[in-house]
Amino acid sequence: MIPPHVRYLTFPDLGSACAALAAERKYVALGGGTVVVPELVRRERHADAMVELRGLVPDGVTVGEGEVEFGALATYTTVARDPRLQEAAPLLRQLAAGITGGAQLRNQATLVGSACRAIPSSDVPAALVGLDATMRVQGPSSSRDIAATDFFLGAFRTALAPGEIVRSVVVPSHPGGYGYLKFKFSESSWPIVTAAAFVRDGASPGGPRWATIGVGGLAPVPARVDLDLDGSLPTAADLNDLLAEQTSAYWSDELADGNYRRSIAGAIARRALAQAATRHQDSATDRGGE
């Protein structure tokens, strides 16, 4: 049970909800609720009130010119079942359909909530980093954008200031190939290592093809590799070296220690990259060859 003193508060608009969250250190924002509610039940989080975000932030997905915007309360089910996203955001659609916890969890939990909790082995943070997502943030009196690469500061820690909430996340919808892979020990397990790879034709950084890979579960914050792809793909060992260059601390928890995660991350990243490269090749063929 949630401690009896905890209140449930609704506000007429987002600004006043953010103002309340800024003023009261022990108020907590309630999005999907699948993280906050059990944390309160387990007494891992101490709060005086839950601030309802329903009705104050968008719960839909907007497919725009070259980008897709996911409202803070868009559930995994909303994302997984949106046929437009097969073209516009296929990696996140696949990710959403495969979230652990069953249909019940996917009906309630959200991409944005997962990002805000910043659990190192969650699916979402590394995918957003790999996809160059932008967090649209609202505070009591102003709004700002934060790049996903700057958003995750540590395990369970983000760049949000007190009173700020993420209103939506925007992901560019480049044409290209994607690959998503997660390694976990059983169907109901948290992921151990995840890899979200994206291959695109690229002027930047300069090669004929360019890849980004966001790797989750390896370190307290998502790791990211950017690389030119000319000729053959890098091996798992190459990717392990690239990941090691930018990882100073590895994530350990009761499911797997840092050494284990470190030893498999390159292989998971390699498989996601291979999927992405194959899809990129197929889409190039569909576009009339190159």
Binding site: Y8, L30, G33, T34, V37, P38, V41, M50, E52, R54, T77, G102, A103, Q104, L105, N107, Q108
Partner: peptide
């Protein structure tokens, strides 16, 4: 209509 784990869901909602 949506299957829901009622331990994750507030009665108020």
């Amino acid at each position: 209509g949506q299957v829901t784990k009622s331990c994750l869901y507030l009665a108020a909602r």
